[in-house]
Design a protein around this nucleic acid. Structure first.
Lengths: 172, 172
DNA sequence: GCTTGACGGCTAACACCGTTAGCCATAACC
DNA sequence: GGTTATGGCTAACGGTGTTAGCCGTCAAGC
């Protein structure tokens, strides 16, 4: 990816991070770089390709934010939620709707899921259930689905306690 | 809501149910009723108002689908997942993104959540964690985020077992 | 019976969207 | 020095939600 392409992806990331996916417009993106929209097509085939690069970038960010907390369930959950709250639009972009897997850098999706797999002790069912819980909590919070004033820390603790319970203890 | 308005909402529901939210276009909606797009604005202030009515309708549907399974956790979970898989686009519409609460029929959101609250034994933390898990499982499945061939029944069982565990037994 | 007004359709148009076609200046390379 | 790739540009197309303004129908009131 040439230098110009990286600038475009960075600008697109900033645009989404600030105003959400709907703010990412080819014209707005061009304007941010002092360029007209059609010129962007000299670097990317279409808008979806730019978005895919932003997703790749965000997944690497998320993996990086999770890595230091790997090993401890509640720390990992806190780091996961913290990233989502810090970058709600990026979180939504990479974790909602169909994923353009064929456009993503290979391995990046697995890398983001690795800490969770590790904390689940290699039990895929447990890992998937945990992932669903964490994603559910985060996305419902981001979308304002919980009643205003709801004690979400408490709900998180309750859920994590259930998963940490004696059902299937970590094998390591 | 007059007769014509109901026809519009029904057509909109059908359009979304068949092809997803993106298929709901004011022009397509009009065409389905033998009418031009601008005429729709004689019945609704904008597209968002039509969508809000469809959301209200879908929430009532979901509540109706959940009611027979109330009381039993795994039955309730099965009914929840079944509705989502039967009407993925409607599920996404009503459970993703910001909710236009001020446009929804009052009480409809609570009614859809009631069976879950009941099965959680009145424990709001437990109810929220369960909701997050169920929504997470469903939306990740709908979005194709799980690996192809993943045994999701098994993941559901694992998660439900964790929540049904001795952490906080039902109080009734 | 005539007038008035609401209702519910219509066309034309605007601003914005992603995208394509085609032109052109610069710069590197043989 | 000519050739070619790079990376800009304008103009335009078809699609989107939405607005303005026109007009036929039909019921109510005088």
């Amino acid at each position: 990816m040439s230098g110009r392409a990286e600038q475009i992806v960075d600008a697109a990331r900033a645009l989404i991070d600030e105003g959400g996916a709907a703010t990412l417009t080819m014209r707005a993106l061009g304007e941010r770089l002092g360029i007209r929209a059609p010129s962007l097509y000299k670097h990317f085939p279409d808008k979806g390709a730019v978005e895919a690069e932003v997703i790749t970038l965000a997944m690497r960010e998320l993996a990086g934010a999770l890595a230091p907390a790997a090993g401890d369930l509640s720390e990992l959950a806190a780091a996961y939620r913290a990233y989502a709250l810090a970058h709600p639009h990026l979180y939504r972009l990479m974790n909602s709707g169909p994923l353009p897997r064929h456009l993503l850098a290979p391995g990046v999706e697995e890398a983001a899921a690795l800490p969770l797999m590790h904390v689940a002790g290699g039990d895929t069912d447990r890992a998937r259930a945990l992932w669903a819980f964490a994603h559910g909590m985060v996305i419902l919070e981001l979308d304002g689905r919980f009643p205003p004033g709801a004690d979400l820390d408490s709900a998180w603790r309750t859920g994590l306690a259930a998963f940490a319970g004696p059902g299937q203890p970590p094998t390591y």
